[in-house]
Simulated assay, not measured.
Amino acid sequence: MKIIVIGAGMYVTGRNNSGVGTVLSSLSQLSKEVKIEKVTVIANSPSSSVEVESATKRINKTLNSSLFVDYYDLVNNRFEELFSNDNYDCAIIATPDNLHYQHCFLSLENKNHVLCVKPLVVNTNENRELIKLQIENNLLGMVEYHKRYDEANLYTKNIINDGSLGDLLYYQVDYSQRIGIPLKTFSGWVDNADIFQYLGVHYVDLFYFITGYIPVRLIAYGTNGILKQNGINTYDSIHVSIIWKRDDEGECITVFNTNWIDPECTSALSDQKYKLVGTRGRIENDHKNRGIELVSDESKIQHPNPYFSDYLFDPNGKKQFSGYGYQSIRQFIMDARDVISGNYEISYFEDKRPTFKQAMISTAIIESVHKSLSNKSNWESINAQI
């Protein structure tokens, strides 16, 4: 199997000590299970070649793997030339939000199964076009909504499905990240994004995954402050209320409070929690404080989340890469392998994975949030029809 990875930022390489490099670490771990002939990382930053080489060496050494990774420079080469010189099976897209459509389209056009980080796109017309192209080419199109693989969320899904909470009334999400993300890490493109489409959409998809409810209308409000004072043209926080239609034709409301202006000294990159309340009970899930607290002279106070993705010892005392972030990427590669080998049709996965079709829910909500924000926070209807 040959795999393209478009983008060489923190999620791919863990550059600038920003993490483990979830994408390359996942592919290195998976290469012990699936034959991966090579991985080509594509990026347009002059420093990315060195970052990719360094990350590959670090990861292969840690996991005792031998994944072959090369680099394709978009500064001096055209995107299309890569496909004309070689045939690839899959593309993993981890680029800024505003480039997702372009990179998904080119990858599908060149017959690659596609996994794209969230959000897929931010308007429904582009989402529909990608679905059409994906189906025409008989390819998988999936979004990397890894919270679907988190055991804590799967437990919540069990509780909802067995009716323990009765009729759902409301779902409240509080989700924030450190201010260094917009000020430094994403400074080159953050003006083309906002905190709701970048982070909040994770919990939009999670609610849809847990309940299967259909969104009807919403209202959004954005606050301005420290980011605009630092020359960044995006909201400090966005607050969204969404009305959903339940299976019994009743309605419930979801409330999202999102920001990316947390202090750099906060004990985790992300502070995230949610609460689901029904007529017979409630469930709360704290995804920042999962029971581990690390205190040291070097790190101060931290709340690590090894359940997402990390290098942990296996029963034989060797490091392996594991977690629900890894499972999300692994599942895509295994599904693509099954389609390529003829074991399954792409339609088999439609109600089982975060496909481009399922992403229409989150895309339609993002689109309506943007309309509400630009229309004095009026209520807006949501059209998620394919």
Rank of each mutant, 00 (worst) to 15 (best):
M1Y: 00
G7H: 02
Y11I: 08
V12R: 07
T13Q: 04
T13D: 03
R15E: 08
N17A: 09
V23S: 09
S25K: 11
L27C: 08
S28I: 04
E33C: 07
E33H: 11
K38A: 04
V39F: 12
V39R: 10
V41R: 13
S45E: 14
P46W: 02
P46H: 04
S48G: 02
E51C: 01
S54G: 00
K57S: 14
K61P: 00
L63Q: 12
S66D: 14
D70L: 06
D70H: 02
Y72M: 06
V75H: 03
R78Y: 10
N85S: 15
N87V: 11
A94Y: 06
T95M: 09
P96S: 06
N98L: 04
Y101A: 07
L106T: 04
L108T: 03
E109V: 00
K111F: 07
L115P: 02
C116N: 14
V117K: 06
V122W: 08
N123C: 13
N125E: 10
N127S: 14
E129F: 00
E129H: 01
L139A: 05
G141W: 07
M142W: 03
M142Y: 06
R148P: 01
Y149L: 11
Y155N: 13
Y155C: 07
T156I: 13
I159P: 03
I159D: 04
I160L: 12
N161Y: 01
D162K: 10
D162M: 04
L169W: 00
Y171N: 13
Y171F: 15
Y171H: 14
D174T: 14
I179W: 05
T185P: 01
F196V: 09
G200V: 04
I214N: 15
V216H: 09
L218A: 04
L218D: 02
L218G: 04
N224T: 09
N224L: 10
K228S: 15
N230V: 02
G231Y: 08
I232R: 15
T234K: 11
H239E: 09
W244G: 05
R246E: 03
D247R: 10
D248Y: 00
E249I: 01
G250W: 02
I253P: 01
W260D: 15
P263I: 02
E264G: 08
A268V: 01
D271V: 13
K273T: 01
K275E: 15
V277T: 14
G278C: 14
T279Q: 10
R280F: 09
G281M: 14
I283D: 11
E284S: 14
D286H: 11
K288F: 01
N289G: 06
E293L: 07
V295H: 08
V295Y: 08
V295R: 12
V295D: 02
N305A: 12
Y307R: 08
S309M: 05
Y311T: 10
N316P: 01
G317C: 09
G325W: 08
G325N: 09
D335W: 05
D338H: 07
G342H: 05
I346W: 02
E350N: 09
P354E: 06
I361K: 11
S362W: 05
T363D: 05
I366W: 02
H370V: 00
S372N: 11
S374V: 00
S377T: 08
W379S: 05
